[in-house]
């Protein structure tokens, strides 16, 4: 006990924690308030809001899985080179040449779990009517986050550069080819012509911009890698900040008025 006290009495400890052990209302409030991560929470919440059978904790699980994906993803980047020459072998080596080779497994299964938890979070929010005023805007932010989650998973699907990856992305990105007007096999595209020269072709349509080529190839791999590791996580991170902030501003976890 004296040992514990001698630690919590030091200047270092006190510089970190500005409150005593949170077993009384004042320190319970301070514990949340004086911590930059915990102050995402309010000091008090509705009793129904902490009940697991009400919230299913799905929003929290989704955020936790995003953190898992970020950490395992950064670690995987140390061993992965996004080129046609190396990508497949690097992924294979991850399994065989790295101790505790389950980092990719954690990343992949975590991604699948995140897609599911986002859907279930949305289901819970719908069934409790939590998109109703004043939370309309936050529901919309949530829908965009759902789309970004799917895009994150989809861009990551290509990176192992195996048969599964290339064909899933070929099938997926070929849908962009059929986009009306701006896809070269979409309705209306053939009307966009300068004299005899068609403007929307396999080398100028929206799919070309997406995969950077006529077919899924080396340029696509690099492009999806950058989208997967940098662009989409940044966008999702910003929107998540907005999402959490709005939860607080719109009155916390929903409950009867």
């Amino acid at each position: 006990m004296t040992l514990l006290k001698s630690i919590t009495e030091t200047q270092i400890w006190k510089s970190l924690f500005r409150h005593k052990y949170p077993d009384n209302p004042r320190d319970q409030a301070l514990a949340v308030l004086s911590n930059v991560f915990l102050h995402l929470h309010p000091i008090k919440v509705k009793k129904s809001g902490v009940r697991m059978s009400f919230t299913w904790c799905m929003g929290g699980i989704t955020f936790f899985l995003f953190l898992v994906e970020t950490i395992t993803g950064v670690l995987l980047m140390f061993y992965y080179r996004p080129t046609v020459e190396f990508a497949f072998n690097d992924i294979k080596a991850l399994r065989e040449h790295v101790p505790l080779g389950i980092m990719r497994e954690l990343h992949r299964w975590g991604a699948h779990a995140m897609v599911i938890s986002v859907w279930l979070h949305m289901l819970r929010v719908f069934l409790t009517g939590s998109y109703k005023p004043p939370r309309e805007f936050n529901w919309n932010v949530g829908v965009i986050l759902l789309v970004l989650t799917l895009l994150l998973s989809f861009t990551g699907y290509l990176l192992p550069w195996d048969q599964l990856a290339i064909w899933a992305v070929t099938v997926g990105s070929n849908m962009a080819r059929a986009h009306p007007i701006i896809g070269h096999e979409g309705p209306g595209a053939s009307f966009l012509q300068l004299g005899d020269v068609p403007l929307v072709t396999a080398a100028s349509d929206v799919r070309f911009a997406l995969i950077s080529g006529r077919v899924v190839g080396a340029a696509t791999l690099l492009r999806f890698y950058v989208l997967h590791c940098v662009a989409i996580p940044l966008g999702a991170g910003v929107l998540m900040a907005v999402h959490f902030w709005r939860v607080r501003k719109d009155g916390g976890i929903s409950g009867p008025m």
């Binding site: 949170p22 209302p25 319970q28 409030a29 514990a31 949340v32 915990l38 929470h41 309010p42 000091i43 008090k44 919440v45 509705k46 009793k47 129904s48 809001g49 902490v50 009940r51 009400f54 409950g255 009867p256």
Partner: peptide
């Protein structure tokens, strides 16, 4: 939920 939401609890430790 209406009965429960009248009561408020501290985030630390409940949540």
């Amino acid at each position: 939920e209406a009965r429960e939401s009248r009561r408020r609890v501290f985030c630390w430790p409940d949540l």
